[in-house]
Design a protein around this nucleic acid. Structure first.
Lengths: 238, 238
DNA sequence: GCATACAAAGTTATCATACCAAAATTTAAA
DNA sequence: TTTAAATTTTGGTATGATAACTTTGTATGC
């Protein structure tokens, strides 16, 4: 009889229920980071479920980065890492990658990044400067034929600018976008001659503006750099 | 340190290997969206593993939104939904929620949102306008004591502005931030008198600027609105 | 006293099997 | 042709056994 009036909207499986329960406990800080969870067998008894169901719940929590499972040792509540948090987003962009997405990414960068550069100029620490300077040097030294490494360095430079704002939300917002730059660059780089010198100069100008705490200049240089990028891609996308 | 001496060999469990294999196939479009995967039993034979190991891999893929599992029917490669992609990020922000995060979020909004409003004014469709208009009406009608609903409506309004840009990346970048607005607003709303009238007027001004395709005005109004928000929170955070 | 080696206990990882429940498919009846 | 029942397919759960790994304590040898 329970079958008749039973679950309608609840297509939830047992393992999903378990997952939610544990997730809620972590969200509400009832389970603090570092806490060791009871062993599988104990949890089975506590929830009154089989190991199969329990394990599938735990595996999903582990996949999402909420807990860490150490074979032979136990399961621990772990601090959700930024990388885990944005991994899904990276995958999403990776799967949606097409010319539309490229245009949209450039539009976003054109609007956001100059502002980011301005804030970075105001807030940058000496460590930020060191990191940026190293990126520039690496870029200059980089073998012009190694477009992969080049794209990687540029990626890091822009990410370091975002870091220099001291604003975690900025970093998180931009990181998934930057992670696509290498893939974008691979599309068009072969077509562009003498681009590298230009790129190095442009990035050095951004660096110097940030170094000198000249927010307006940083804004302008970053905007110019992305305008150039936009031109190149507009040409390519045609 | 962990990086340096961390495990070299395959600390990967069997189920993780399976997960990677299938994920790679999806990433490389060898498995297209909508494809029905072989049944669990068949996959067990193909991979030569037990059902347990296989299932744990499949459950994780399902948790990440890459496949959809239908009981009695089968498993299908599914299009990764935006909501799935940003869920982890929402959780991350939720767990990191503190006064620092609030400040950083407001800083990001102060910089990004006016620009978003400007672009929205240029690209908005009539449907966008209808949605925004409805948000304004709902906000005006909303019971002043129901702060939860109020915050929810405002959240939707800002999200709709982002949607009006026509740029998917904008939406995705801002959504996790907006999803925290209700929680933020709950902190301070009780302390503010006569705030609601102000809020309605401010949002209506933004709406009208977007309606009139007046980018500059939209920029200014949005900036003003967030400046006010900043003031309120600055007061609260002290 | 100290360091190494080893054994034991606890834990997760995997496997194999069985049965249950839901959905789709086939078959039989009206 | 339509409907309803039976069958098949498929995922969901349960259980028990074994393997692999980590930690810890203990014993051994120096």
């Amino acid at each position: 009889m329970d079958e008749i009036f039973g679950k309608i909207g609840t297509a939830q499986t047992l393992s999903q229920k378990i997952e939610r329960r544990i997730e809620e406990a972590i969200r509400q800080k009832k389970l603090l980071v570092g806490t060791k969870l009871p062993s599988e067998r104990e949890l089975c008894e506590m929830f009154a479920v089989s190991r199969t169901a329990l394990r599938e719940a735990l595996r999903r929590l582990s996949a999402r980065g909420l807990i860490q499972i150490k074979k032979g040792s136990g399961m621990f509540v772990s601090e959700l890492r930024i990388e885990d948090a944005i991994e899904s987003l990276n995958l999403y962009y990776d799967l949606s990658f097409d010319s539309d997405l490229i245009s949209q990414i450039i539009e976003v960068r054109r609007v956001f990044e100059p502002e980011i550069a301005r804030i970075a100029a105001a807030n940058r620490t000496d460590e930020d400067l060191t990191a940026l300077n190293k990126n520039i040097a690496d870029l200059a030294d980089c073998d012009p034929d190694n477009t992969q490494m080049e794209a990687d360095i540029i990626n890091k430079f822009h990410l370091n600018v975002a870091k220099a704002t001291g604003n975690k939300v900025m970093i998180i917002s931009m990181e998934p976008i930057y992670s696509l730059l290498p893939r974008m660059r691979n599309l068009i780089y072969a077509n562009v001659d003498g681009e590298k010198d230009f790129t190095v100069k442009a990035h050095r100008a951004i660096y110097e503006a940030i170094r000198d705490k000249d927010g307006e200049q940083a804004y302008k240089e970053m905007a110019g750099q992305i305008d150039r990028t936009l031109e190149i891609y507009t040409q390519y996308l045609k």
